[in-house]
């Protein structure tokens, strides 16, 4: 783009956009600030600096939400779902891309066209089928549901990437007597690492933050993921803002920390995924 010189115009633009960013982050700042206040202080002057910093809200919220357990459930579901989705999708996409013929075109078309179906359009029968397969009411069941829901988009990502990987390496490996499983896991899968990163980032954000599927599948408090615990907390302690704000901050901390640590990868991954999708 033009304008490499840092002129006074650029400075004004920079100042204006910094003000925008401060306005953007102000709601998060208010939530964090008020989470350290006593209840009356929150209610009477929520935009002001705290009269006294207290951490008692966090202690109570930590217990009320059973936070370590909730955090574990979220991590369990996200990690296992990702592992399964990547396994299923990378294998299928590679075979579909390398296998000539109309059959694989039709299967790919089936996967890709299903991406337009909104989840809300299939959720009612999905609960019925999930019930028959005994996937409802358990964390592993939820993970299996994510396999089926996450596969189409991930296959689409992998398929686009595999097509750009040259076939010569694979051909020479076959001549050297490499079996199909060995060929895929030892040679192909490592080459797919960039798109695996993209897939894991996109699927993790989706599964970690998902609410609608877990709320239909998990009914017991001990299985709650972070969004479910948050929802049930607000249903139970409506307007108890002291504990509620601490719970909100606790709920966002893991993903915000991860984002700040990996922001370059995450933003790149999300951009790549959406431009292809």
């Amino acid at each position: 783009m033009v304008g490499n010189r840092y002129s006074w115009k650029t400075l004004l633009l920079e100042l204006a956009i910094v003000v925008c960013a401060l306005v953007f982050l102000y709601p998060l700042y208010l939530v964090v600030l008020n989470s350290f206040k006593l209840f009356p202080d929150i209610m009477s002057r929520s935009a002001n600096w705290p009269e006294a910093f207290i951490t008692d809200n966090y202690v109570r919220a930590w217990k009320a939400t059973n936070f370590p357990n909730v955090l574990f459930n979220s991590a369990f579901v996200t990690v296992l779902s990702n592992a399964g989705i990547v396994l299923l999708s990378s294998m299928a996409a590679w075979r579909l891309a390398r296998r000539a013929g109309r059959g694989s075109q039709i299967v790919l078309l089936l996967f890709v066209s299903s991406m337009v179906i909104p989840f809300q359009s299939i959720m009612i029968p999905l609960m019925q089928i999930g019930g028959k397969l005994e996937l409802i009411g358990s964390l592993p069941g939820l993970v299996v549901l994510y396999f089926g829901l996450g596969a189409p988009f991930t296959i689409f990502l992998y398929h686009g990437f595999v097509k750009s990987v040259p076939t010569e390496i694979e051909e020479s490996a076959i001549i050297d007597g490499c079996g199909m499983q060995g060929l895929f896991w030892k040679i192909v899968f490592p080459l797919l690492k960039p798109i695996t990163m993209t897939a894991v980032i996109l699927n993790s954000l989706w599964i970690w933050n998902d609410f609608l599927l877990p709320v239909m599948v998990l009914h017991q408090a001990k299985m709650y993921t972070i969004p479910l615990a948050l929802y049930s907390f607000f249903a139970q302690y409506a307007k108890q803002w002291d504990m509620a704000l601490a719970t909100l901050v606790m709920s966002m901390t893991p993903i915000v920390a991860l984002f700040l640590g990996l922001q370059r990868f995450i933003i790149r991954g999300i951009t790549a995924g959406s431009v292809k999708g």
Binding site: L88, S89, M91, A92, W94, R95, L96, R99, S104, V107, L110, F111, S114, I117, S121, I122, M123, I124, P125, L126, Q128, I129, G130, L133, V144, L145, F147, G148, L149, A151, P152, I155, M180, Q181, F184
Partner: peptide, 23 residues
């Protein structure tokens, strides 16, 4: 085909395609 595509197809048919058609 069955080993590589089968599993993904099975999960997809049971948990996305069938619910869609049943709907």
């Amino acid at each position: 085909d069955a080993v590589f595509i089968g599993p993904a197809l099975l999960f997809f048919i049971t948990l996305t395609l069938l619910p869609f058609l049943f709907g």
